[in-house]
């Protein structure tokens, strides 16, 4: 093995295709040149390799040093962002420009630009993070106001888009209290009932369940307050539970699983088990059975995890 390695390693070197441009770039950095020419050079390095962070960094310093018009730079970034949507630096460079006051565009126009990016790639991490930064950094009521509608449209397109769910939590809870949301109890009621509707539509959607848990934990609302809602999701469709219900009465508080729902839903069983665990000792057997049904039947890949929950509960009861 070692001899073969020695042989093969002889020519060990990386072979960049844009060697000329990167060589020039190195020369320019060494000489400390900051000029119009450097902007052209760094642009060509970046176009070939947008992950070349040194080129981005030197470009930014050059822009500032020669007082280049930042609005023009932002226009170039519009093009590059569409070309290199998945790239980190593209979004960060925009952010630097905006922090430096490049405002050919208003923050609202930035949100529209980001929305266009997300229409191609609805879960792009950097794009979402950049959107959240715009909102938090400029922190204008008018910017925040449009977000709920935007999120609802995104979830309309794909109720399983976790990035949109996270963005909802970001908007409603993570940044303090928004204008219009001052009545927190009302806000929480609104969020819980919105999420219930989405769960009813497609019950096996981890994003919606996680959001529901997030809202409840954030507001210290006991999971048990949702017991009525959760129960129909924990049993097979057309189970005995249906016989005692009158479907002609629509319970707005507790939307029922859609006709196509695949039941029982493991996330609902887990939720119910957590209710029982929180209620305490008397219910110990029942939540152990629920977890056990996940371990052995409904969510077998996570057998170990559900068994871990049982032993943790056991340990906290014993202590």
């Amino acid at each position: 093995m070692n001899q073969a390695l020695t042989q093969l390693l002889r020519s060990f070197i990386l072979k960049p295709a844009n060697k000329d441009a990167t060589d020039y770039f190195r020369g320019v950095v060494k000489a400390g040149e900051m000029s119009e020419r450097v902007l052209t050079l760094t642009e060509s390095v970046i176009r070939m390799n947008p992950a070349h962070y040194s080129a981005w960094q030197y470009r930014y310093r050059t822009l500032l040093a020669i007082n280049a018009p930042l609005d023009e730079e932002l226009e170039l970034m519009d093009e590059l962002a569409e070309k290199f949507l998945k790239n980190y630096q593209v979004w960060h460079h925009r952010r630097l420009l905006l922090q430096r006051g490049a405002l050919a565009k208003t923050p609202a126009a930035e949100l529209a630009f980001i929305a266009r990016g997300l229409s191609y790639d609805a879960k792009n991490y950097h794009t979402w993070a950049y959107r959240q930064w715009i909102l938090a950094y400029f922190n204008q009521d008018a910017l925040w106001e449009g977000e709920m509608r935007y999120i609802e449209n995104m979830l309309e397109d794909d109720v399983r888009n976790n990035s949109a769910w996270h963005h909802r939590f970001f908007v409603v809870f993570s940044n303090g209290v928004r204008k219009g949301d001052e009545d927190r109890e009302d806000t929480i009621r609104r969020e819980v009932s919105f999420t219930k509707e989405k769960i009813a539509l497609a019950p096996n959607n981890a994003s919606a369940w996680n959001y529901l848990r997030g809202v409840l934990e954030h507001s210290d609302t006991p999971f048990a307050s949702l017991r009525e809602f959760v129960l129909p999701y924990t049993v097979p469709a057309h189970s005995s539970l249906d016989d005692v219900r009158d479907d002609s009465v629509v319970d707005l508080e507790n939307p029922r699983p859609s006709p196509g729902a695949d039941l029982p839903c493991p996330a609902a069983i887990e939720f119910l088990a957590d209710i029982h665990e929180a209620v305490g000792d008397l219910q110990l057997i029942s939540f152990r059975q629920l977890w056990k049904s996940l371990a052995d039947e409904h969510d077998t890949i996570r057998k170990r995890y559900w068994e871990h929950r049982i032993s943790e509960a056991q340990a906290s009861r014993d202590s």
Binding site: Y125, Q132, N139, D141, S174, N175, G176, V177
Partner: peptide, 21 residues
């Protein structure tokens, strides 16, 4: 951020940028 409408914020929150990953 020096937000212009700081008074609408309850405390100084630290929102996560981006989802759990």
């Amino acid at each position: 951020a020096d937000p212009p409408s700081l008074e609408t914020l309850a405390d100084y929150p630290r929102p996560a940028l981006g989802e759990a990953h």
